[in-house]
C-alpha cells in the first residue's frame, strides 16, 4: 500500500517532468529521444535492478561501479589481447563477478560486518584490480561488437530500440518477476523487515545474504558488458561513482534505504527520471551537465523527506503503532485513572 504510493509519486514526477520538458522542447516527446534515453541508461538500469534487491534486504552495495569498470577492462583485454571469443569472455567475467559477490556476502554474514564497509572494501579492490590489468582505454574492435551496436528495432517516429536497451528491459522484467513472485523475493523483503525475526522463522539467512550480493555483482557485471558495448572500449576509469547514481535511482524509485520495501518498477522509473534530467540538459545546451547531479541531489532530498512523511502518516493512522507497543512493554499495567484507589 505504502510502497505503491511511493511508486505512484515517482511515476507522477516522471510524467509531470517529462510534460514540462516537452512543453519547452516539443522534440523531446519523440520515440527517438525516449529510445536514446533507454540506450544511454541501459547499464544504469541493469545495475540498479541488482541494487534494489540489496537495499530491500537491508544492505547496500558500494562496489558496483568498480565492478562495471573491472568488467569493461577484463572483457576488452580478453577479447583484444588474449584472443578469447567474446561469449567465452563474457561467461568468464560473469563467473568472476559472481565469486566476488559471493565473497562479499560471505564476509558480511560470517563476520557480521556492516555491508557498507565490506562493499566499500570491495569497491577499492575491484577498482584496484582493473588498474592493475590496464591503465589505458582499450578499444574493442571485434565484429560482434559492431554488429550488436548496429542492431536495433526501428520504432515509429524514427526511434531505434537498441540491443542494449532491449537487454535492460528484459533483465528488469526478469528481476521484477524474481523479486515479486518467488520465495527468494519474499525472503529478500523479510530480511529487510527484520534479520533476527527472519532467522527465527527458519529462513537460511546466510545463504540468502550471499545470493543477494552475488546477484548484485552479476548484474553489475552484465551492466559492465553492456557498458562496453555502449562505449566499444574497456577502461579502468569507467563508471566511477556510478554506485551513487544507482543508489539515488533506487531511492527515488521508492525503495526504503532501511530495507523492507521497494520495487524494481520503481527503480526503473528512478533511472528514467535521472535520464530525463540529463536529456533536458542536453536539449537546453547552455547548462553544464553537472546540473544533472544537482537536480538528482534535490530530488533525492525531496523523495527521502516524502518517504519519511508517508511513513509518519502511516504510523499515525495504523491501529497499534510501534511506539505503543514499547510503552506497553515498559508499563504493562497502565490503567485508566478511574481504576486507581
Amino acid at each position: 500500500m505504502k510502497a505503491s504510493t511511493s511508486v505512484a509519486i515517482t511515476a507522477f514526477v516522471l510524467v509531470a517532468g517529462f510534460a514540462l520538458c516537452a512543453l519547452q522542447f516539443p522534440n523531446i516527446a519523440s520515440t527517438r529521444v525516449v529510445a536514446n534515453l533507454l540506450t544511454d541508461n541501459a547499464f544504469l538500469g541493469i545495475v540498479a535492478a541488482g541494487m534494489t534487491f540489496v537495499i530491500i534486504s537491508g544492505g547496500i552495495d558500494l562496489s558496483v561501479g568498480s565492478v562495471i569498470g573491472f568488467t569493461t577492462v577484463f572483457t576488452a583485454l580478453a577479447i583484444e589481447r588474449w584472443g578469447i571469443p567474446p561469449l567465452a569472455a563474457f561467461a568468464m567475467v560473469l563467473v568472476l563477478c559472481a565469486l566476488f559477490g559471493a565473497a562479499m556476502g560471505t564476509v558480511i554474514h560470517v563476520f557480521e560486518l556492516p555491508p557498507f564497509i565490506v562493499t566499500l572494501a570491495g569497491m577499492f579492490l575491484a577498482r584496484g584490480v582493473s588498474f592493475l590489468l590496464s591503465t589505458e582505454s582499450i578499444p574493442i574492435t571485434t565484429p560482434i561488437y559492431s554488429a550488436v551496436s548496429d542492431f536495433a528495432i526501428r520504432l515509429p517516429g524514427g526511434g531505434r530500440l537498441t540491443a542494449i536497451a532491449i537487454a535492460m528491459l528484459v533483465i528488469l522484467v526478469l528481476c521484477a518477476l524474481l523479486l515479486h513472485l518467488t520465495r527468494f523475493g519474499a525472503n529478500v523483503y523479510a530480511l529487510g523487515g527484520s534479520r533476527a525475526a527472519t532467522a527465527l522463522m527458519g529462513i537460511p539467512v546466510g545463504p540468502m545474504t550471499i545470493r543477494i550480493y552475488m546477484l548484485s555483482s552479476v548484474l553489475a557485471g552484465l551492466a559492465g558488458i553492456v557498458f562496453s558495448f555502449y562505449t566499444a572500449a574497456g577502461y579502468s576509469l569507467s563508471a566511477v561513482g556510478v554506485e551513487l547514481d544507482t543508489i539515488a535511482a533506487v531511492v527515488i524509485g521508492g525503495t526504503l534505504l532501511t530495507g523492507g520495501q521497494g520495487s524494481v518498477i520503481g527503480t526503473f522509473l528512478g533511472v528514467l527520471i535521472q535520464g530525463m534530467i540529463q536529456t533536458y540538459i542536453n536539449f537546453d545546451g547552455t547548462l553544464s551537465s553537472w546540473w544533472t547531479k544537482i537536480a538528482t541531489g534535490v530530488l533525492l532530498f525531496v523523495f527521502i523527506a516524502l518517504q519519511q512523511g508517508l511513513m509518519a502518516l502511516a504510523r499515525r493512522s495504523s491501529l497499534k503503532p510501534a511506539g505503543a507497543k514499547l510503552a506497553g512493554a515498559k508499563s504493562p499495567e497502565v490503567k485508566p485513572a478511574g481504576a486507581l484507589t
Binding site: R183, A186, N187, Y189, A190, G192, G193, S194, A196, A197, T198, L200, M201, G202, I203, G260, Q261, A322
Partner: peptide, 16 residues
Amino acid sequence: VNLLPNLSVAQNLFLG
C-alpha cells in the same frame, strides 16, 4: 512479536 511487519499477513504465515 517476532514477525515481519513489512510483509503481508499471508506471507508471514507461510514464509519459507
